[in-house]
Amino acid sequence: MKRILVVDDSRIMRTIVKNTFLGLNIPCEFLEAGNGVEALRLIAENSVDLILLDWNMPELSGIDFLKRVRTLDSYKDLPIIMVTSEAAKYNVIEALKNGATDYIIKPVNEKIFAEKISKFNF
């Protein structure tokens, strides 16, 4: 059973992301965080296999969370996929440069998730 951390300040979006992911029929359980600070706490307390990370959030944004996490050796190989409305190329490049494993532009759908997740050994 894989454990996936969904980080998004929108509760409705966390549910949509989870439901879209569940449509792939991959056995998994979810943890949820509403911002980067909560996400840092959750990964310190739990082992996770994948993080789905929004960009714009209060407290600590997704991009700042990403930068912080990638400075820590224990998380340098953890798959982190940005799931964000930020569609400009310069945003995609910034995220990838700072260690995002992949990038999904909202609105999300199963096809895109399936394509991205197929790269991992899930």
Partner: peptide, 16 residues
């Protein structure tokens, strides 16, 4: 939450 997320996605997508 829903209406806020919709305008967020509209604005983020328009940046492209």
């Amino acid at each position: 939450d829903a209406i806020g997320e919709i305008v967020n996605i509209i604005a983020g997508n328009a940046k492209k």
